[in-house]
């Protein structure tokens, strides 16, 4: 196997194994995601929320909040005992570390999203079954961008003095445009319209994904260095 891919999948497998041992990140993320849905349900006191506007917004707020928990955890594990340094000492391209960490974050956030959607659908009575493939596509695209820029910025926040506190502060302002796009595309999908109506939004998300995968690929090394 190619050395680069060996690095990428080595990092990915290691992250998933670590998580499988404790399951602490996933538990925290899933519980937090549920809490956000319930909090919204209570605070808006709505019998039936608007499928076009409120529901997708709520869903993506839950994803964004729980996603930050996962990103923080992913990097505190690396920084705790200097393990990230061991990755840098290994003979592999440092962008492979980025890709591996990004994929592990994508998998974990994606799993939590897969848990959140049914709960959200039942608790807030938003039908999702009829549009599940489209919803999955939109969610995956949006989450890819979140994981890409999130992995890069979590590398920064975890090395800073403020650690966990800093990540949402630097991530959310960058994330807003794609949050908007993902919410819009999800709204289109949830209200039963064809995916093509959200074409512009999906293009925008795709551009964002590509730009920040590229930035992470190029500049993650500068984040890792001491």
């Amino acid at each position: 196997m190619n050395a680069y891919l060996r690095g990428v999948f080595g990092v990915l497998r290691k992250d998933l194994r670590l998580e499988w041992r404790s399951r602490e990140a996933m538990t925290a993320m899933a519980f937090f995601s549920l809490l956000v849905v319930v909090l919204f349900g209570f605070s808006f006191q709505t019998e039936k929320i608007d499928v076009r506007t409120t529901a997708p917004g709520l869903l993506w707020v839950a994803f964004s909040f729980s996603g930050v928990l996962g990103l923080n955890r992913s990097f505190s594990l690396e920084r705790e005992n200097g393990a990230l340094r061991a990755l840098m000492l290994a003979p592999l391209d440092r962008s492979a570390i980025f890709v591996g960490k990004m994929l592990s974050n994508l998998v974990m956030i994606g799993l939590v999203e897969a848990l959140t959607v049914p709960l959200f659908s039942v608790l807030l009575r938003v039908p999702v079954l009829s549009c599940l493939p489209q919803l999955t596509l939109v969610t995956c695209l949006g989450t890819l961008g979140f994981a890409a820029v999130g992995t890069l910025l979590a590398g920064i926040s975890s090395g800073s003095r403020m650690r966990e506190v800093l990540l949402p502060l630097i991530l959310y302002p960058i994330w807003i445009p794609i949050l908007v796009a993902s919410v819009e595309a999800t709204g289109t999908v949830l209200s039963g319209k064809p995916l093509s109506e959200a074409g512009d939004w999906l293009t925008l998300i795709g551009v964002f994904d590509l730009v920040f995968l590229g930035v992470g690929f190029l500049f993650f090394e500068a984040v890792l260095e001491e």
Partner: peptide
């Protein structure tokens, strides 16, 4: 790195909004 991310995001922000 954050400066680069932020600046590259400007056009994306503009279109989304």
């Amino acid at each position: 790195v954050l400066g680069i991310v932020g600046a590259l995001n400007v056009p994306i922000v503009y279109f989304s909004v």
